[in-house]
């Protein structure tokens, strides 16, 4: 088994034992199932809660999990031991990032199952969720790499996470929040999930692509400046 695969397996096992990280993956899918199946306010779109919680899920879970995992490894010096054992930074990031991506995707499947979608729409839904998750992981990874401890990672993650996950929701009630949210990847996730089955605006994809590049740039900058130790 390759080092990345070993790290992926280890991280996944660890996640199931780490309640604070595990709850991030479970909270929104469960909440969506309950709200979508039990609460049906009149006048709201059919998949209202799936879109709403799906957006919040993408903005919160991968980011907090990625930042927490990397910061914990740095704080407890397990990352240093891994590098001493010959693990390459690339292998670590692929293994650990993958171990955040997979549970998020499984959570996405639960979210998707809670909504009323055709098979083609389900594929589209999961693709949007996967792309949003990737941007969140990069942002969380950048925070984790830049932080010296779990405490500092949390204090950096919370404002970014709140901005990314709540701004699209606030955009429903406030025009300016909506305008701002349009420029965020989570805002695009919200628009794309809300318009599943319909025509995709190329401008939305372009903004999303720019967000992806920006997140990747932030991650590379943090990595070059701080490294993994």
């Amino acid at each position: 088994m390759s080092n990345a695969a070993l790290l992926f397996k280890r991280q996944l096992t660890d996640t199931f034992r780490n309640k604070t990280v595990l709850i991030q993956f479970l909270l929104f899918p469960i909440l969506t199932l309950i709200m979508q199946k039990m609460v049906r306010p009149e006048g709201l779109p059919e998949n209202f809660f799936v879109t709403l919680f799906g957006t919040m899920y993408v903005g919160m879970a991968p980011m907090t999990a990625a930042a927490a995992i990397i910061a914990e490894e740095k704080e407890k010096n397990t990352l240093r031991v891994l590098l001493l054992a010959g693990v390459r930074p690339r292998e670590y990031l692929i293994g650990s990032g993958g171990a955040v991506f997979l549970p998020c995707l499984i959570g996405g499947v639960v979210l998707c199952a809670a909504g009323e979608y055709s098979p083609a729409e389900r594929v589209q839904f999961l693709a949007v969720l996967a792309a949003g998750t990737l941007v969140s992981i990069l942002l969380g990874g950048a925070i984790g790499v830049a932080s010296r401890s779990q405490m500092s990672a949390t204090s950096l993650t919370v404002p970014v996470m709140l901005l990314c996950s709540f701004l699209p929701m606030l955009g429903l009630f406030n025009r300016w929040a909506g305008v701002l949210a349009r420029w965020l990847y989570s805002g695009q996730v919200n628009r794309l999930l809300g318009g599943i089955g319909g025509r995709v605006d190329p401008a939305d994809l372009l903004i999303f692509g720019l967000n992806l590049l920006l997140a990747a740039g932030l991650f590379v900058t943090a990595y070059r400046k701080r490294g993994l130790t």
């Binding site: 088994m1 080092n3 070993l6 280890r10 096992t13 660890d14 034992r17 780490n18 407890k76 010096n77 397990t78 990352l79 240093r80 031991v81 891994l82 054992a85 010959g86 693990v87």
Partner: peptide, 21 residues
């Protein structure tokens, strides 16, 4: 600072590093 995985047992800590090395 040791750098042990706290949520892993002693055996699991060693098995993981045995696989890595």
């Amino acid at each position: 600072d040791l750098g042990l995985y706290d949520r892993f047992t002693a055996e699991e800590n060693l098995s993981f590093y045995a696989a890595l090395t």
